[in-house]
Amino acid sequence: MSASLPVSNLIAAMPLPSLAISQSEQIIALNAAAQKLLGVPAKGGHFITVLRQPSVVEAVERCLKGTGPTTATYLTREGSNDTTYTVSVSLVENTGIALVTFQDITMVTAAGQMRRDFVANVSHELRTPLTAVMGFIETLQGPARNDAPARERFLGIMQAETERMNRLVGDLLSLSRVEADERVRPVTQVDIVGIVASTIRSLTPLATEANVSFVVDLPEDPVMLAADMDQLLQVFTNLIENAIKYGGRDRNVYVTLEKRDRVNAFRASGVVVSVRDEGLGIDQQHLPRLTERFYRVDSHRSREIGGTGLGLAIVKHILNRHRGRLKVQSKLGEGSEFIVLLPLEQARNSV
């Protein structure tokens, strides 16, 4: 008891899920976090029947044989989520006891996968127009060298593809800048009514070209809040431009702004800006993923109208910086409504 009590106390005090294994290969102590993680009666049992996963069992066996500290990966599932742990195994000096600790690296693993997916998506998005441009250049240098009509047609397509690449690079740079500033709260007071009105004016030529009419309801008086004017211009430009493009020709786009004494999302005063179109709408299964990078409901249509798949991701990060929210409401055949919620009282201290 004198030998096991200090080990039990040590294991219980460990902040990570931890357990101790004796030279007889029995689990002699574990803390509550480890018991919850393993999910089976463990104390007094043979470590192989408890840990089970071959890589972890092998790491413990090597350590007990005196090969020094070892590590392994332990995979499990908590609810509907896969969880990854790094398992560290080391001998406690002069005791022959192996100390096993589990460190949750799920977020690190997920971040790594996100980076790999991001690079893969960017590569894919750039490869398609690059391949097209290279193919047309080869054609213009060869069979179409002296074909003036074909040359004009190909040059027009090449211009469209290079503009697409330029938009993608621009959005990538914009996303990078937004993410870099995301934890810095804006402090400059700006008039959000003026920002929305300015956005509508700048997009009027695009709406006129598509025979789209704006139905606008904005307060007459300024509504001031702490914000980055350029970033909010980017938010509303993105949402209203999307409404024009995806709402379809000969339709209306409705833009409203309302100042409320209480917005439930903040439990405080705030501003609600709604941008609604009369388009085809979005199936409910797509709504939770709309702000993911490169996620498109209709990839072909999005590319046709110049979408990069990054616009709503940029909107999300800008609103995060402003402690705001983006809500999307849509039904197939009934159009879509994008609602921006912004608090009127920002935190005084930047993070």
Rank of each mutant, 00 (worst) to 15 (best):
E304P: 01
I282E: 10
E258Q: 13
G307K: 05
R262N: 11
N264P: 03
A313S: 15
L232V: 00
Y254K: 08
G306C: 03
V253Y: 07
D283L: 08
R293G: 13
V297A: 01
L280A: 14
T291R: 04
I282K: 07
L257M: 11
V271S: 03
A313P: 00
M229Y: 10
D250N: 14
E220K: 05
S302C: 07
M229K: 13
V273L: 03
R249A: 15
S274L: 09
T308P: 00
R289H: 14
R276L: 13
I244W: 02
R267T: 07
L280S: 13
V297T: 13
L319S: 01
L280P: 06
V315Y: 12
D221G: 11
M224L: 14
A227R: 10
D230E: 15
K259T: 07
L310E: 05
A265G: 06
R249H: 13
G281K: 02
Y254R: 09
L310C: 10
R303M: 07
H317E: 15
G311S: 05
R249Y: 10
D261H: 08
L290Y: 06
V235F: 02
E220M: 03
I244E: 07
T256F: 03
Y254G: 04
V223Q: 03
D217Q: 13
I305S: 12
V271P: 02
L280N: 10
G281L: 00
I314K: 04
N264E: 14
G311I: 08
V297K: 01
L287M: 09
Q284G: 11
L257C: 15
Y295P: 00
R321W: 03
H300P: 00
Q234T: 15
A313C: 14
E220R: 02
R276W: 09
D228L: 02
G270C: 06
V253A: 07
L232F: 15
N320H: 12
